[in-house]
């Protein structure tokens, strides 16, 4: 089996400051990987380099494309990379308003990716949008409302529907549950878990919330100062952390 994503010695500097340094890992279809670390540890830089939003200074990001197999997304042409961005990849932002068009209805938000890849039948697009809104538990009669009229949790679910409608294979998530009420978080986590399982998605989730990765991620990567200090099975890293920083991170979580 070929990995879906094969990352090799990826580095990104901001001038003298290290964004992320020599990160290597692979991700197989159906796997969910968590990246944890405190603010400034380089996890968001890494995620943006992987998703093609930032150009790394060094390293490769090989993605298993449908047509050509493993291909370096860092050096591929921009049109090709952007095409991946709206077909095989999805990006769920922490703030839904960064990932949604706030002036466009929920239906239009979900339909955009379909239209971007050539769908031209209004009835079909609307039917698919309706179906996806249902899957993220947004009532059908809200389809013509703008996201500005939605609660934070609904906006986040809409963002997920908008991203998944074209059947991506790899989903990048940046703190997907950050800033939401705890009760809303739980429902969203459960939904993400089910979608990942039912659709066989691979996902990379950046978060500083260890409870989130325990529930969602199969594997875990711990970052500090731009470096990966520990990787492994999620529950193993959380229950038997080896690196001093991982131990500190795990022991710092407040118990409820």
């Amino acid at each position: 089996m070929t990995p879906l994503l094969d990352v090799q010695t990826l580095s990104k500097n901001y001038g003298q400051r290290i964004g992320c340094k020599d990160v290597s890992f692979d991700l197989y279809p159906g796997e969910v990987m968590g990246i944890v670390g405190e603010s400034g540890s380089g996890k968001s830089t890494l995620l943006n380099c992987l998703a093609g939003h930032l150009e790394p200074d060094h390293g490769k990001v090989l993605f298993d494309t449908k047509t050509d197999g493993l291909k370096d997304t860092v050096t591929m042409s921009e049109p090709e990379r952007r095409m991946l961005g709206r077909t095989d990849w999805a990006f769920v932002h922490q703030h839904a308003r960064d990932g949604l068009r706030m002036s466009v209805s929920a239906g239009g938000n979900v339909g955009e990716r379909l239209m971007a890849v050539g769908a031209r039948h209004y009835g079909d697009i609307r039917a698919q949008a309706t179906d996806w809104l249902g899957r993220v538990e947004i009532r059908e009669d809200r389809i013509d409302d703008r996201p500005t009229a939605f609660s934070g949790g609904m906006q986040q679910r809409l963002q997920i529907a908008r991203n998944l409608v074209t059947g991506p294979r790899l989903v990048f998530m940046d703190e997907p549950t950050g800033g939401l009420d705890v009760s809303v978080q739980a429902r969203l986590l459960d939904m993400i878990r089910e979608l990942v399982r039912d659709l066989g998605l691979s996902a990379i989730i950046v978060t500083h919330d260890l409870a989130v990765v325990r529930l969602l991620a199969d594997r875990l990567m711990v970052m500090k100062d731009g470096h990966v200090v520990e990787t492994g099975l999620t529950d193993q890293v959380l229950d038997d952390p080896q690196h001093s920083y991982s131990q500190l991170l795990v022991s710092s979580v407040l118990q409820v």
């Binding site: 239009g108 339909g111 955009e112 239209m115 971007a116 890849v117």
Partner: peptide, 18 residues
């Protein structure tokens, strides 16, 4: 430049929806 014109149809989609 990249002929990414899906957005144009979003506008027409919104029209029909509303």
């Amino acid at each position: 430049a990249l002929e990414e014109y899906g957005l144009m149809h979003v506008k027409l989609f919104e029209d029909i929806s509303q």
